[in-house]
Design a binder for these strands. Structure first.
Length: 134
DNA sequence: ACACTGACCGGAG
DNA sequence: GCTCCGGCCAGTG
């Protein structure tokens, strides 16, 4: 798994994130078969450009606690990320300290991790999805 | 090889 | 809700 392959895998998964939904770095990493590379998921995302095509919804990737990493003194990428999320209809709450959070219980997108992700080379035809609407 | 850093995760108090 | 701690993997000096 080269860096390029890793990036490609990350982008592919991130693009699968539906609108009005958010997921975590850890989950993306898990989906691509590298649950321990959670940090590298973001590492790869930072290489993305606003001109990428098809566009990668990196803004739908947040921390495991639904917290948006503040990559700035406040009005930075995080602010933009929040704006984009709200633009899609995702509710983002902000704390007094400028903490931006998203209710994963409401907007969280955590599809079942297939064996294909954990065991590359093993294929299966069964699919499971434990998503709930409400 | 060692030490520090990073868009992180999970457990315990 | 929050803080404190250990673990994980990769990049850099």
């Amino acid at each position: 798994m080269d860096s390029a392959e890793f990036h490609a895998a990350v982008y592919d998964k991130v693009r699968e994130i539906p609108a009005q939904r958010v997921t975590t770095y850890g989950h993306i990493a898990k989906l691509i078969g590298m649950p321990r590379h959670a940090r590298h998921v973001g590492q790869a995302l930072k290489f993305l450009s606003p001109q990428t095509n098809p566009p990668v919804p990196w803004h739908r990737v947040i921390g495991a606690s639904g917290t948006i990493s503040s990559r700035g003194p406040g009005t930075g990428g995080a602010q933009n990320q929040r704006g984009v999320l709200e633009a899609e209809g995702v509710e983002v709450t902000t704390g007094r300290t400028g903490e931006m959070r998203v209710d994963l219980s409401r907007w969280g997108w955590f599809p079942a991790v297939d064996a294909a992700a954990t065991q590359q080379g093993r294929d299966q035809t069964g699919e499971e999805s434990s998503e709930s609407e409400g």
